[in-house]
Nucleic acid binder design. Structure first.
Length: 504
RNA sequence: GGCCCCAUCGUCUAACGGUUAGGACACUACCCUUUCAAGGUAGCGAUACGGGUUCGAAUCCCGUUGGGGUCACCA
């Protein structure tokens, strides 16, 4: 088995909710890998034991599984759930490895022990801030410790961290695929901690060691890492390893231009799922954040596309570098587009029902012909799966409420209702054309516009003035149910009204 | 504050030195219509600013401004 030419990875940290940014990185990393018949892996970065959250780990992997249901390319070739010979893919299980390389760096002089306590560091840092120093990194106090003293204190059991000995002069150039050469002055670099007091590595060391050992060829990650890339290059050099290609993707922002984050109240992937956003819509939407499908001959960009189509056309040249503000409104529009134009009716029926069962909306509601008819007539009327259920309670229960507007319509058509009932009761069937002919005839006989008879009827059988078309709705509900509903409203003595007033 | 990145309609974006600066979401109007949607048509709306380079600049260069990131024993 020859090594793949391209190996990409995402390295989520299990500290909280499944982040949209992780899904975004997963998309770009997997699309690029698939385009080159490469390998895409997921490595859990759980070396911060204080922020570790066991549940989060499973939720992140579940999120990837969920997105993977719409595109196989997104399914990782290796992950904590699918180990291979380059694993384990859970970073904490590799801590021994990281320590070993930290020691190698120590041996070669590329790194050194620092015995400062966190308190000391905090004080000195604060002092530097008070002095308004421009350099706020580690003051390198222990960098000049002799080898003997360092070894002696360590042997005596004094706690220490291992820090990178960054060069004090010269420059380090990062060749970023999207930005070209970015030059950093080494004097600005910090002697970053590589191995923490608790024996676990920091991201800097762990990611470089693991990326190298796992054969990662292209590090595709968020722009926030750009400024620490010189550190990463130094680590790689110290270990004598080749650099991967660096690709720092643009920001995902929330309204207001700040970094998109759950902490600021931005929805997580799970939130979108609960909202009834389809995985294909989310992926499609993320695909147009920072990247665009080449436009056709008419100059209009293709807005609806799958990850597979993205693979066909993807190039880094089409990535725009300005951050993109996440617009939930547009996501919803796209989701609606998938519902009404991309997915088949059967598919939508299945998803709406499965979603309803999962979220507790569909209790006692079968996935039968009636249900299918309701979905069909609602198709252009809901953008998210949750919205379907919110707008269709009256289809599935006799316990629907009548809102103010509907109550007024009913009162306005009070004298027509008995005739309406009689007319509908006399019909041989409730086929679309039958009820349409009958209702239009009734309106004509009464000398009123069709709306005059249909609005009160709609209000009575739906409890709202907003519904699918009258005749398809009548046909689906059926004569018996419709007549009962009309009769109930007819017999209600008191005027109806109020958001929650019952039908009786 | 030092350093780094970025900059086209409100938002997502197209343009790869020559276009009336195009499309999409949102918004407005109209059409369709039994309501609400969907759909269709039209409209509103941008090259942050200032200098260069060039016959010609959204596009290349410099500066200014603005926004973001980073400077953790977090990732």
């Amino acid at each position: 088995m020859s090594a793949p030419q391209v190996v990409t990875r995402i390295a989520p940290s299990p500290t909280g909710d499944p982040h949209v940014g992780t899904a975004y990185q997963a998309l770009f990393n997997s699309v690029f890998a698939r385009q080159h018949d490469g390998k895409f892996v997921v490595r859990l970065e759980d070396t911060d034991r204080s922020r570790y959250n066991a549940a989060s780990e499973g939720r992140i992997l579940d999120m990837l599984d969920w997105l993977g249901t719409v595109w196989d390319g997104l399914k990782p070739d290796a992950s904590p759930r699918r180990e291979d010979e380059f694993g384990p893919y859970t970073q904490s299980e590799r801590a021994g490895l990281h320590r070993q390389y930290a020691e190698q760096l120590l041996e070669s002089g590329a790194a050194y022990r620092a015995f400062d306590t966190p308190e000391e560091l905090g004080e000195r840092r604060k002092a530097a801030e008070d002095r308004k120093d421009s350099y706020l990194g580690y003051d390198r106090r222990d960098r000049t410790l002799s080898r003997e003293e360092s070894d002696g204190r360590a042997a005596a059991g004094e706690a220490f961290v291992i820090r990178l000995a960054a060069p004090l002069e010269g420059q380090t150039t990062v060749r970023d695929r999207l930005r070209g050469d970015v030059v950093f002055s080494n004097a600005e670099l910090d002697d970053k901690v590589l191995l923490k007091r608790d024996g676990f590595p920091t991201y800097h060391l762990a990611a470089m060691v693991d990326d190298h050992l796992m054969g990662v060829t292209h590090v595709i990650r968020a722009e926030e890492w750009l400024t620490s890339t010189p550190i990463h290059q130094l680590i790689l050099q110290g270990l004598g390893w080749a650099e991967p290609e660096w690709i720092h993707t643009p920001w995902l922002l929330s309204k207001g231009g700040k970094k998109y984050s759950k902490r600021r109240g931005d929805p997580s992937v799970e939130d979108f799922r609960k909202m009834g956003i389809l995985p294909e819509a989310l992926l499609n939407y993320l695909g147009m954040m920072g990247w665009s499908m080449p436009s056709g001959d008419d100059g209009a960009a293709q807005e609806v596309f799958s990850p597979a189509e993205m693979v066909e056309h993807f190039t880094w040249e089409r990535v725009s570098l300005g951050g993109s503000t996440f617009d939930v409104e547009k996501l919803r529009w796209l989701n609606g587009k998938y519902i009404r134009e991309v997915l088949s009716l059967d598919d939508v029926v299945n998803r709406v029902h499965a979603f309803g069962a999962e979220q507790g909306y569909a209790e006692g509601i079968g996935k039968n012909e009636y249900f299918r008819a309701v979905v069909a007539m609602m198709l252009p009327r809901f953008e998210t799966l949750a919205e379907f259920w919110e707008k269709t309670t009256y289809f599935f229960s006799e316990d629907y409420s009548i809102n103010d507007k509907a109550a007024k319509l009913i009162e306005g058509g009070r004298e027509l209702l008995p005739k309406l009932h009689t007319t509908l009761a006399a019909l041989p069937d409730f086929a679309h054309d039958t009820t349409e002919a009958a209702l239009r005839q009734l309106a004509e006989a009464e000398g009123v516009k069709p709306g005059k008879v249909m609005q009160p009827l709609r209000a009575a059988i739906a409890g709202t003035s907003e519904s699918p078309g009258m005749f398809e709705m009548l046909e689906a509900m059926g004569q018996g149910r419709v007549l009962e509903r009309v009769a109930r409203v007819l017999n209600a003595e008191m005027p109806l009204g109020g958001q929650d007033s019952p039908v009786y």
